Amino acid sequence: MNIDIIAGARPNFIKIAPIIDAIKSKKADGYEINYRLIHTGQHYDKNMSLQFFEELNIPKPDLNFEVGSGSQASQTAAIMISYENLLKTEKPDLCLVVGDVNSTMACAIVAKKAQVKVIHVEAGIRSGDLAMPEEINRIVTDSLTDYYFTTTKTASENLIKEGINESNIYFVGNVMIDTLNKFMSSFKPPKVWADLNLQEKSYVLLTMHRPSNVDAENSLKAIIDTVCENSNGLPVVFPVHPRTLKTLNQLNINYDRLYTIPPLGYLEFNYLTKYAKVVITDSGGITEETTVMGVPCITVRNSTERPETVTIGTNELVGTKSERIKLYLNKLFNEGWKEGKIPEKWDGKSAKRIVDILISNMS
């Protein structure tokens, strides 16, 4: 069995790492299973990509399309052309895509047209918000998939409602948590930890990158103002995404306790996450990690594709209005926070389940 594993952006790297480990383990046990790792280059910051590969012990990609930046359409088209050319010369048995970035959808389309079966890891998650490019990527990818691997029963139910054959859906848990559990003991403090003399539960961690929050100056300023003015005197540590930096540089923001820093690698960022008083974010993946680590999380979005982080975990979906962010920060500092639980099968064994199922189905 030959599998193409597609990765294009940093969230993908976190998800493919345990899958590659599981494949290697099965191959060592004598199973005929091989993979070809393809980096589309969707996240084109070579230093950041390289850091993630090194930290998570991911092998060097067999191929890198290096498509770089561009509009949704131009980037997707570049990935599709590159992958189509590759499949003309060497076709695998399976194409495995993860998550919901442009690379996921692009390679799923090309593989399906080339009669290659598609595996979607993290299938079935839905926000119901078609203004999110990721939601469109998810829906298109799942309309073409052959093997659906879901993180929760809710995601499986979403697929069934959409008419997917239940026999093709496998509830395996969350591969992101496989990586989190494996590397938690290796988390390390970033430079800012010593520079600011940070202590456990004595700072706020802020991340923002979604266009709706960071592309408009007034939106980003309102979020930062609200967080800084309602953080109970705690320092606010803000690793700034390149997209966010463009807008931030146009703003006249000056808070003594706001500390903007460059993006961090996986081990350093999750160290800050683990010991934060609260994480304020618009990222989906971070809400999963805070849930497992038991860290209060405030999501500045109007919808989430990961509802279990709210219903089971430590996350609260508060919307984007300043008064709602303020309300939940006041709740945190004055009343405390809910005690979350870890969702079913988020146990560090999801990748093994995936590879076991593939071997069973393909043998």
Rank of each mutant, 00 (worst) to 15 (best):
L180W: 02
L180N: 04
M184I: 07
P189S: 08
P189T: 06
P190E: 03
V192Y: 05
V192W: 07
L198K: 08
Q199W: 00
Q199C: 03
E200Y: 01
E200I: 06
Y203F: 14
V204C: 12
L206H: 07
T207F: 03
M208F: 03
M208A: 15
R210K: 04
P211Y: 02
N213H: 08
D215K: 09
D215L: 01
A216H: 04
S219P: 02
S219R: 15
S219G: 00
L220D: 07
A222E: 15
A222P: 08
I224Q: 12
I224R: 12
D225K: 15
C228I: 06
E229R: 14
N230K: 09
S231G: 13
N232Q: 12
N232P: 10
P235C: 13
V236L: 12
F238C: 07
P239V: 12
V240C: 07
V240H: 10
P242F: 02
P242W: 04
R243N: 09
T244P: 08
T244R: 05
T244G: 06
L245C: 00
L245E: 11
K246I: 13
T247V: 08
L248R: 13
N249L: 13
Q250Y: 07
L251V: 05
N252D: 15
Y255H: 07
Y255L: 06
Y255S: 06
Y255G: 04
D256K: 15
Y259I: 11
Y259F: 13
I261M: 01
I261T: 01
P263L: 15
Y266Q: 10
L267M: 12
L267Y: 01
L267K: 03
L267I: 01
N270M: 11
N270W: 04
Y271L: 01
Y271R: 02
K274I: 01
K274W: 01
K274G: 00
Y275S: 09
Y275C: 10
K277N: 09
K277Q: 14
V278Y: 01
T281M: 04
